[in-house]
């Protein structure tokens, strides 16, 4: 008789044979005329230029770090929540257990919040916004027309 692993082996062999059969039929039937254009990278019909690995703003790194900090904090809160309300511990310590764990967790959160305050104070949460540059060229359109538009929407 087949063992359990024998069945798994049979499944693997069957999958491999079935795949080879299907690909084999496809290989027999299909026409094959590769051209350089056909083998080129597909980019919605545009010229595939440059590298797929692009650079992006380094500020994302800081934001990601801060996110991970509070992500991990949440992960620690879950096991804490399971022992916080443990009736046996509370009864054994006359209610002291609840206060102890609560204070402990608040200390932990405050330490992390201090970190956030530090990052905030250092200005790492500030995202530099692009400046509005006034055009410097001679034009028949008076500058006041642009100013009117800008003023209208900044006041809102």
């Amino acid at each position: 008789m087949l063992s359990d692993f024998g069945i798994v082996l049979l499944a693997f062999i069957f999958a491999a044979v079935a795949l080879m059969l299907v690909f084999g039929i496809s290989w027999l039937l299909r026409p094959s005329n590769p051209t350089t254009e056909k083998l080129a990278t597909y980019e919605s019909g545009e010229d595939p230029i440059g590298n797929a690995n692009i650079r992006f703003n380094v500020r994302f790194y800081i934001v990601a770090l801060i996110f991970i900090l509070f992500d991990v904090e949440l992960v620690f809160l879950f096991p804490w929540a399971t022992v916080f309300g443990n009736k046996e511990y509370i009864q054994q310590t006359n209610g002291l257990w609840g206060w102890f764990t609560l204070v402990e967790m608040f200390i932990f959160i405050v330490v992390l919040a201090l970190g956030l305050a530090y990052v905030w104070a250092k200005g790492h949460l500030e995202w530099v916004k692009p400046d509005m540059k006034t055009p410097k060229f001679k034009s028949k359109v008076p500058m006041s027309m642009y100013e009117n538009v800008n003023k209208k929407y900044t006041e809102k």
């Binding site: 299909r30 026409p31 094959s32 005329n33 051209t35 254009e37 056909k38 080129a40 597909y42 919605s44 019909g45 545009e46």
Partner: peptide, 14 residues
């Protein structure tokens, strides 16, 4: 037309 031509080329035969 440029893009269409390339996309057509990139489709497998038939």
């Amino acid at each position: 037309a440029d893009r269409i031509s390339r996309l057509y080329e990139q489709m497998p035969d038939p």
